[in-house]
C-alpha cells in the first residue's frame, strides 16, 4: 500500500488560499483534518470529564466548580477550535524547498530545503487511517526543527510529496 509509485500529476494542486502577506500562495491541508482533530480532542477530554463528574457526584465542593469549566473547555476544543486551527495550516512546495506555515497566536513559518532532508516519515494513527489522511514528517540534521510535521494530507498526497522530495535528494547529489 505504501510502495505505489504515484504519477507526478498526483501531487496536490497548488490552488489557493491563505494569504499571509507574502508572495506565495499556500496550499491548505485536507479538510478531513477537522473531524480527526475533533475526535482527538474528544478522546483527550474523556478522562477529564469523568474525573470532574466524579467530583461533582461526590459533592465535595461547590456545585459545578470543576465540571462547568471542563465542559466549556471541551466544547471549545471539540467544536470551535478545530476549524480555526485547520484554517491556519498551509504549505507550499517549491522547486527545491517546502514551506510549512501554522498557527495564529503562536505562528510559525518553517522552510526546509529538500537538500537538507535526512529521512521522511508518512504516518497514520487509527483515526487518521479511517479518514484516509496521513502526516508527513521531514527529519533534518539541525537540533532545532529536527523533525517538521505536516499533518492531515490526503494519504495519496502525502505519498506523492514524499516521492517528490526523495527524488530531489537523489537528483541533488548527482
Amino acid at each position: 500500500m505504501i510502495d505505489a509509485e504515484p504519477a507526478a500529476s498526483a501531487a496536490p494542486e497548488i490552488s489557493s488560499i491563505i494569504a499571509l502577506g507574502d508572495d506565495e500562495t499556500l496550499t491548505p491541508i485536507d479538510p478531513r483534518d477537522i473531524p480527526v482533530t475533533r475526535i482527538g480532542y474528544a478522546i483527550m477530554m474523556v478522562p477529564l470529564i469523568i474525573g470532574t463528574m466524579v467530583l461533582e457526584i461526590a459533592q465535595l465542593t461547590i456545585a459545578g466548580i470543576f465540571i462547568v469549566p471542563a465542559l466549556i473547555l471541551s466544547v471549545y476544543l471539540i467544536f470551535i477550535f478545530p476549524p480555526r486551527q485547520y484554517r491556519r495550516w498551509g504549505y507550499h512546495m517549491g522547486s527545491d524547498r517546502i514551506r510549512i506555515v501554522r498557527g495564529y497566536l503562536f505562528y510559525s513559518d518553517t522552510v526546509v530545503p529538500f537538500g537538507r532532508v535526512q529521512h521522511i516519515d508518512v504516518s497514520q494513527g487509527p483515526v487518521e487511517r479511517r479518514y484516509g489522511i496521513a502526516t508527513l514528517t521531514l527529519h533534518t540534521a539541525g537540533n532545532h526543527n529536527s523533525s517538521v510535521p505536516l499533518p492531515s494530507l490526503a494519504h495519496e498526497d502525502a505519498l506523492a510529496l514524499r516521492e517528490t522530495i526523495r527524488a530531489h535528494i537523489k537528483r541533488d547529489t548527482l
Partner: peptide, 14 residues
Amino acid sequence: GILFRTARSIPYER
C-alpha cells in the same frame, strides 16, 4: 506500528 503506522524512507545518500 500496530495502531499508529509509520512508513519511513531513508535515502541511501543520507
